[in-house]
Amino acid sequence: MTSHATSAEQNMMVPDLTFEPGMKVFNMKLGMWVFLLSEVMFFTSLIGSYVILRFAHPDHFPEPGVVLNVPLTAFNTFFLICSSVTMVKAFAAIQKGDQQKFKLWLLGTILIGAAFVGIQAYEYSLLVAEHFGPSAAGYAPVGRGMEEGGPIVGGPLYGATFYTMTGFHGAHVSIGVLCLIFVLIQAMRGKYTAADHRGVEVIGLYWHFVDLVWIVLFTIVYLI
C-alpha cells in the first residue's frame, strides 16, 4: 500500500493519493473500543462520586467486612474471572475453527455470567434482610453477626453508593449474558468460522471490560 505514497513524493506531477485507511481494525471492533471509553466515563462518574463521598464522610463507610459478606463476593469474583478465561478459550477455539469447543466454552461463559448475577442477587437479598438498603430511610444495618437492635454501623451514603455501583455493574453483566446468548444462537446457526468470527471478538471485548470493572469495584468496595 505504501509504495504509492512514496512514488507520489518522488514526482510532483503525480497526484498525492496518500491513503489513510484509518485504524487497522474492522468497524465493529473500533466501535466497541470507542463505546467502552464512554463506559469508562460512566463508571468514573459513579466511582468518582463514591470516592468523594467516602472522603467527605468516612463515618458513613465502615470497614468492608462489617456489613458485607466478603468471602461470598470473593468467591463470586473468582467466578467472574473464570468466565473471562472461558471467553478467551471460546475465542481461541473459533480461531482454530473448532465449532464444538467454541460453543461449549461459550455456553460455559454464559452459565458463569448468569451465576454471577444470581449470586449477586442472593447477596443483595441477604443484605436487605440485614437492613442494609439503598435508601436513607431503609438503612439500619448493625453489622454481620451482631444482635438485632444494636447500634447502626455506617451511614446511608454507604448503602446508596454500594447499590448504585454494584447494581449498574450487575446490569452490565446481565446485558453481556444476553448478548452472549445471542452469539451462541448465531453460533448454532453456523455464523462464525475460523475466517470470520468478528462478533465473537467484539462481545469478548465487552465481556473482559465488564470483568475489569468488577475487579476495580471489588477492590474499592470490598477490600479497601
Binding site: 451514603l157 446508596a160 453508593t161
Partner: peptide, 20 residues
C-alpha cells in the same frame, strides 16, 4: 456518560431516597 451517572444518582435521590 458523566451526566448520565449524575442523572441516575439524582433520580435515585428523587425516587428511592438514596441521598447522594
Amino acid at each position: 456518560p458523566i451526566l448520565t451517572g449524575g442523572l441516575i444518582m439524582l433520580l435515585f435521590d428523587q425516587t428511592i431516597g438514596t441521598g447522594f
